[in-house]
Amino acid sequence: MNKQKKTLFPVLAGVTALIALSAVSFSGCGVSYPAGTAAQSVSDMCKKEYDISVKAKVYGKTLWVYLPLDQLVDANGQIDEKTGDTIENAALCVHRVLSSTDEDLDFYVLIASDIKTLGAEFTLIGHVYDIMRVRLLDISRGEYQRRMLRDLKINPAALGDAEGHHIRLSDLDMARFLAEQFTRRIKLKFENEKKLNQKFVYKSGKWYVQNNTFILNLDIAEKEPSETLPLRSSKHKEPNVLDIALKELAFILRRYGFEDYEKVRIANFATNETRILTKEEMKQIR
């Protein structure tokens, strides 16, 4: 009897511990925003937690969120602090919902439009997986900022459109997203990095994706000698725009693990230089 009890006690303790652990684990089962509710959840959360009215809709694998505002930019063309907070709060709601949903979404687009005064429109495009990674500290906030696509423009069609009818919904794809991200990163790089900024001038960057080929047309010219610092010795190797651009592109493709392409055709109109690389060649670039 005593022996039986001795044997029974650890078994009971084990079963109890198992039940307790299962209870805790099962409490984690199920997502906060099940598939099919993501768009509505964003609208509800914005309204409930920040008193912001947004229109949200899922198109393909992209979540579109429209945020109509009375005013977006001030007289200086800058987004004021209050409006900035509103956009940030709306973006936060989008991030929270996308982090905790099992809906099959790849991208989100947040469009904040001034529907009363100028028709200014701010667009924010992001990749869902990037949200997870920045939250898990897998990428830095700086890198995250570089991965998001931002755009501010005047769109008269936005005036008076509180429902977002003027927005043409589409399903974003990865290749286009990466190509756009690439051109923006190159622009930032050549404009912000002192070493490059002293030597080159960024004029434009265009991209196309055709027949599984990235077509990247840059126009980055070398500054006149008088504009630049004194030349170093002839032994010093001058940076090549296409080398820098390809390195950046290889980095982006590698970080996203994107392989759904065959070639890259990159050109710099300023120097009439063009290069065509296969996927394998791109993989070699470090």
Binding site: A23, V24, S27, G28, V31, S32, R135
Partner: peptide, 24 residues
């Protein structure tokens, strides 16, 4: 404590809940 843990976890969004359980 288990009750509180369950209650606390239930109040979290699934992203943070999964994160916590993964670390458990």
């Amino acid at each position: 404590l288990i009750g509180l843990s369950i209650w606390g976890l239930m109040s979290l969004e699934s992203f943070y809940r999964n994160l916590t359980i993964a670390q458990m």
